[in-house]
Amino acid sequence: MKLFYLVSAALALAACGAKPESSPPAPQPITERSVGHYCTMNLSEHVGPKAQIFLNGKPDKPVWFSTIKQMFGYTKLPEEPKGIAAIYVTDMGKVSDWRTPNADNDWVDARKAYYVIESGFIGGMGAEDALPFADKAQAQKFAAEKGGRVVAFGEIPDEYIFK
């Protein structure tokens, strides 16, 4: 019987120290303080889709990106932090004015988005960029009409990101 009480006490103590799983931080709106991680320019100065990454322990301070390719580079470069709590990208399928995306805070979880790459779309830094869509059918329709191909988050080729 003593063993039962010891085990029960150990389990109760372990449960007290367990941290409840928290939900990821919500995407933040772009403001005048939203500055691109690599370009150090205000995101509102750039056309095209944007991205934000939340690092573990910093739920209210996203790392901002002027382009989708920059966000992918950040996730792949060994010198950048890897404790990522959440990544959000512009859902271009919900954007009404492509000159001012995110005016309505149209964000989608980057890992669940579909990306049109190799379409020739010139993004915020004057180079070709990927276009994220929450809906795969919208991404496929865009690629069929404008060119490019549709890939998932884990399928973006390194050659495309670092070209």
Rank of each mutant, 00 (worst) to 15 (best):
Y5S: 05
L43T: 01
E79M: 15
V108A: 14
C16R: 09
K82R: 15
K2R: 14
G126D: 00
A127C: 01
K19G: 11
T67A: 10
L55I: 08
G17H: 11
E79S: 15
Y5F: 15
G123K: 07
K146T: 08
F54R: 04
E118K: 15
Q28W: 01
A86T: 09
V108E: 06
A143G: 10
R33C: 07
P27E: 05
V150P: 04
Y160Q: 13
R149H: 06
I30V: 15
N102F: 01
A134Y: 05
R33P: 02
A15C: 14
G126M: 04
E79W: 12
N56V: 08
K2Q: 15
M41Y: 03
M92C: 04
H37S: 03
A127E: 10
P81D: 10
D97W: 08
L11R: 08
Q140C: 04
K61V: 11
Q52V: 02
K163A: 12
E118Y: 15
K69I: 04
F54Q: 02
M1C: 13
P132K: 04
A85E: 15
G93T: 00
G154V: 05
I68T: 09
E32Q: 05
D106G: 08
G93S: 07
Y88P: 07
P24I: 13
A110K: 00
G57Q: 08
Y5T: 02
G123N: 12
G126K: 01
G154N: 14
K112F: 05
M92Q: 09
P49K: 07
A144K: 08
K61G: 03
Q28T: 02
